[in-house]
Simulated scan of single mutants.
Amino acid sequence: MDLFDDLPEPKQTPVPVSAQLKSTREEEEEEEEEEKEEIKKVCREGLPVLRGYVAARRGEREEMQDDHVMLPDMSSCMSALPCQVSRVSYFAVFDGHGGARASRFAAEHLHHNLAKKFPSGETENLDKLVKKCLLDTFRQTDEDFLRKASSQKPVWKDGSTATCVLVVDDMVYVANLGDSRAVLCRMEAAAGGGGGGGGGGGVGGQRKVVTLALSKEHNPTIYEERMRIQRAGGTVRDGRVLGVLEVSRSIGDGQYKRCGVISTPDLRRCQLTANDRFIILACDGLFKVFSADEAVKFVLNVLQEGSVEKRSGVTEEEVRFEAACQQLASEAVRRGCADNVTVILVSIGF
């Protein structure tokens, strides 16, 4: 008699316990990933919609020394995002001096350095990590350019300002060196007025235009900047470092680094709201002939003009923003700015 006659025949090959455990783990991991994606999807639906427009004018200069980058979605440059982040956007302007090599180098490399250093996975205190990432990115980009510049014969003496707007979901981080600037247009309810349309649609008597500075200028006439330059053994004459360089912080400018010119950016942070309309990011060519308030009001006036030319596949709002960006740059030249003018206009919609 076969002792095992009463045992049912196995219907399939038994799965080892270790494989069963592995399968269960995989299922749990897949569920977790689906849950995270679902959370990100929910987050993404409430994020501001950002669109970038750019206009560049050479002015009376022989060479265009400005450069710019617009990446409404930076995820293609990044290996992974932090778990709680759905989207990272990047917009930047670089105003070169002494040549176009420093501005071009920064435009080509800074966002790639940023992508490599950006936090990923499970993170605590994301704000602190993003700020450290920006500081490290600027230092690395400057060091890399100076290394390349010093290896040339003759040595490159180019330098560049840098103003970068990094938007992490709905949080804006601005890192800047030099005198290129970023400003935000926010529409607020006027005292005694109604709330106005959502997203800052109307101005009229109901809404008040508020211009928020998102960056800080660095030039040798500012007390703290001048003191640092003098402590390093440099001098400030006629508002310039050694009587030559107009900015006190920059990428490149190797010959001035020993005189207190640094590549450490100022960092500012601002959370976007449904009242925000747009960000203007521009080199000093624009701000030599426009105050920040004037530039914001100029853009608003173009956005509110009556009829616009309709174009296939482009919304009326996009046509208006494109026109506003182009007209702002052209008006700077018309007002007599002989410098290069580069303007990035970032529309904000909720």
Score class of each variant (00 low, 15 high):
Leu129Thr: 12
Ser23Thr: 14
Pro48Ala: 04
Ile348Asn: 06
His111Asp: 08
Val314Leu: 11
Val296Pro: 01
Gln84Trp: 02
Ser248Trp: 02
Ile222Glu: 13
Leu281Ala: 01
Tyr90Cys: 08
Phe4Arg: 04
Gly196Asp: 02
Glu32Asp: 15
Val54Thr: 12
Ala55Asp: 05
Glu316Asp: 13
Val174Ala: 01
Gly313Gln: 14
Gly201His: 08
Glu188Gln: 15
Ile39Ser: 00
Leu7Asp: 06
Glu225Ser: 06
Glu29Tyr: 08
Gly201Pro: 00
Asp95Lys: 10
Ala55Glu: 09
Tyr256Pro: 03
Glu224Val: 13
Glu38Leu: 12
Gly98Phe: 04
Val54Phe: 02
Glu246Arg: 14
Thr123His: 01
Thr235Lys: 05
Ala189Glu: 12
Arg226Met: 06
Pro154Ser: 04
Leu267Ser: 12
Tyr223Leu: 14
Lys148Pro: 02
Arg237Met: 15
Cys185Val: 06
Asn176Gly: 11
Leu267Tyr: 13
Gly349Asp: 14
Thr342Ser: 04
Leu126Lys: 01
Leu300Gln: 09
Leu328Glu: 07
Glu34Asp: 11
Gln206Ala: 07
Asn219Ala: 02
Met78Ala: 07
Ser307Trp: 09
Thr235His: 05
Ala295Phe: 01
Met70His: 09
Cys164Val: 15
Cys270Ile: 10
Arg237Gln: 15
Ile279Gly: 00
Cys133Arg: 08
Arg44Ala: 03
Pro82Val: 06
Ala149Ser: 08
Leu135Arg: 07
Phe105Asn: 08
Ala338Pro: 03
Gly201Lys: 12
Leu328Trp: 04
Ser160Tyr: 10
Asp66Ser: 04
Leu50His: 03
Asn340Glu: 09
Glu122Arg: 05
Gly252Pro: 03
Met74Cys: 13
Leu81Asn: 09
Phe350Gln: 09
Arg44Phe: 03
Lys153Gln: 07
Ser250Pro: 00
Lys310Tyr: 09
Glu38His: 04
Glu63Ile: 13
Ala55Met: 03
Ser23Leu: 14
Leu272Asp: 00
Leu134Asp: 11
Ile344Gln: 00
Thr123Arg: 01
Gly193Tyr: 01
Pro48Phe: 08
Arg61Trp: 05
Ser103Gln: 05
Arg101Trp: 11
Glu316Ile: 10
Ala329Ser: 11
Glu122Phe: 02
Leu267Gly: 15
Leu286Arg: 06
Arg139Glu: 15
His68Thr: 11
Leu212Tyr: 10
Thr221Ala: 14
Leu50Ala: 03
Met187Asp: 03
Ala332Gln: 09
Glu143His: 06
Val54Glu: 12
Gly336Thr: 13
Val341Gly: 07
Pro10Ala: 11
Arg335Phe: 10
Ser330Lys: 14
Glu32Thr: 13
Glu9Asp: 04
Arg237Ile: 15
Leu146Ile: 03
Pro265Asp: 10
Gln140Cys: 07
Thr123Asp: 00
Glu143Thr: 08
Val244Ile: 13
Tyr53Phe: 11
Glu124His: 14
Val296Ala: 00
Leu135Glu: 09
Lys216Cys: 10
Tyr173Gly: 11
His112Gln: 07
Met171Asp: 12
Ala102Pro: 06
Lys297Arg: 14
Asp142Glu: 02
Ala282Met: 04
Glu246Ser: 15
Arg181Val: 10
Cys283Ile: 10
Lys216Pro: 01
Gly199Leu: 05
Val15Gly: 04
Pro48Asn: 05
